[in-house]
Computed example of a mutant assay.
Amino acid sequence: MSRWSESERTYSRPWHGPLRHYDILKEATIGFVVVLVLTFLLAITFSSPDVPPVTIQSWAKAQPAGFVDVALTELNRTSTTATYGPPYNNQTGSLQSLGPVSIQKFFGVKYPINTARDFVLNPLATLPHFPALTRAISTYEHASTATQDHWVGIYLSKMNKLPLSSATIVAHLPSAGPVPELMTHLLAMAQSGALDAQLLTQSSFYTTNYTNPLMFIGDSVVAQPNSYWNKLVTTDHLQGDQWGVMNETGSWPGQPWMWLYTMWYQVPPMSNSSDVDVEVLAIMTVLSVALLLVPVIPGLRNIPEKLPLYRLIWRRYYRDPEFTDVQRT
Rank of each mutant, 00 (worst) to 15 (best):
S175V: 06
Y140A: 08
L187Y: 12
P225V: 04
Q266M: 12
P18M: 03
R315G: 01
W257L: 13
G299D: 06
Y317K: 00
E248N: 09
K61L: 14
A290T: 06
V33N: 05
F130T: 05
N272K: 01
N272Q: 14
A167Q: 15
L182G: 05
N90H: 13
S157V: 02
E322I: 15
N160M: 11
A197S: 08
P100E: 13
I154V: 15
L95F: 00
S94N: 08
L287M: 14
G31N: 08
L292Y: 13
A132F: 02
T115P: 06
Q224Y: 04
S138M: 03
T329K: 13
L25F: 07
T249P: 01
A62F: 09
W243M: 07
W264P: 04
V278A: 07
P295A: 07
S203D: 04
T329N: 13
L307P: 01
V296E: 04
P87W: 10
I56D: 00
V179C: 14
M258V: 10
I56K: 00
F67R: 00
Y22C: 02
L98A: 13
L162D: 04
E248H: 09
Q242K: 13
H129V: 08
L127Q: 10
G31T: 02
L307C: 10
A223Y: 07
V70A: 10
P268D: 10
P53S: 11
K110C: 12
K26D: 11
R328I: 10
K61G: 00
S12C: 04
L38G: 04
Q63M: 06
T55I: 09
S2N: 11
